[in-house]
Amino acid sequence: MHLSVSRITGVAAVLAGIALGVWVAFGAPRDWHGGMRFLRYALVLGCLGAISGGAKLVFPDTSGDLPDATSREAPDGGSGSRV
Rank of each mutant, 00 (worst) to 15 (best):
Leu45Phe: 10
His2Trp: 07
Gly78Glu: 10
Asp65Gly: 08
Cys47Thr: 15
Tyr41Phe: 13
Ser71Asp: 13
Val22Glu: 11
Ala12Phe: 08
Gly46Trp: 03
Ala69Lys: 05
Arg7Cys: 13
Gly80Arg: 11
Ala42Pro: 02
Asp68Thr: 00
Arg40Leu: 15
Ser63Ile: 06
Ile18Cys: 00
Glu73Gly: 06
Ala13Gly: 06
Gly54Asp: 01
Ser52Arg: 09
Gly54Cys: 04
Gly46Arg: 01
Pro29Glu: 09
Pro60Val: 02
Gly77Asp: 04
Arg37Asp: 08
Pro60Met: 10
Leu57Ala: 15
Val11Glu: 05
Ala69Arg: 07
Thr70Ile: 05
Phe26Ala: 03
Asp31Gln: 13
Pro29Phe: 01
Ala13Gln: 12
Ala19Asp: 12
Pro67Gly: 02
Cys47Val: 02
His33Phe: 08
Leu39Cys: 13
Phe26Arg: 09
Leu43Cys: 13
Gly80His: 07
Ala42Asn: 04
Val11Lys: 05
Trp23His: 13
Asp65Ala: 15
Gly49Met: 01
Tyr41Ser: 13
Gly21Ile: 02
Ala55Ile: 09
Thr62Gly: 08
Leu66Trp: 11
Ile51Thr: 08
Gly10Met: 07
Phe38Ala: 11
His2Gly: 14
Met36Leu: 15
Gly77Leu: 00
Gly34Tyr: 05
Phe26Lys: 13
Gly53Trp: 04
Thr9Ala: 12
Asp65Cys: 10
Gly35Ala: 15
Gly49Lys: 05
Ser71Thr: 07
Val44Gln: 08
Ala55Asn: 10
Leu45Cys: 10
Gly80Glu: 02
Thr62Asp: 13
Leu3Phe: 09
Ser52Thr: 09
Gly54Ser: 05
Ala42Trp: 02
Pro75Asn: 08
Arg7Gly: 02
Pro29Asp: 12
Val44Asp: 01
Ser81Tyr: 03
Ser4Thr: 12
His33Thr: 11
Gly10Glu: 04
Gly34Ser: 06
Ser79His: 11
Pro60Gln: 08
Val11Ser: 03
Ala13Arg: 14
Cys47Trp: 01
Ala13Lys: 14
His2Asn: 15
Ser79Ile: 01
Gly46Lys: 00
Leu15Trp: 01
Gly21Asp: 06
Gly77Pro: 00
Val58Ser: 09
Pro60His: 08
Trp23Phe: 15
Met36Asp: 12
Arg7Ala: 14
Cys47Ser: 14
Ile18Asn: 00
Ser63Met: 12
Ser79Leu: 06
Leu15Pro: 00
Arg72Leu: 14
Lys56Thr: 13
Ser52Glu: 01
Ser52Gly: 00
Arg30Phe: 11
Ile18Tyr: 02
Trp23Met: 12
Leu57Lys: 06
Leu15Gly: 00
Ser6Ile: 04
Ala74Arg: 10
Ser81Asp: 14
Ala28Asn: 04
Leu3Tyr: 03
Lys56Leu: 15
Asp31Arg: 12
Asp61His: 05
Lys56Glu: 11
Arg30Ser: 14
Gly21Ser: 07
Gly64Ile: 05
Leu20Ile: 11
Ala55Lys: 04
Ser4Ile: 13
Leu66Lys: 14
Val22Ser: 02
Val22Cys: 07
Phe59Pro: 00
Arg30Met: 09
Gly80Ser: 04
Tyr41His: 14
Arg82Ser: 00
Pro75Trp: 07
His2Ala: 13
Asp31Asn: 15
Cys47Asp: 09
Ala74Ser: 12
Gly64His: 11
Gly64Lys: 07
Ala19Pro: 10
Leu3Lys: 09
Gly54Leu: 04
Leu45Ala: 04
Pro75Gln: 11
Ser71Val: 07
Gly54Phe: 00
Asp68Leu: 07
Arg72Asp: 05
Ala25Val: 10
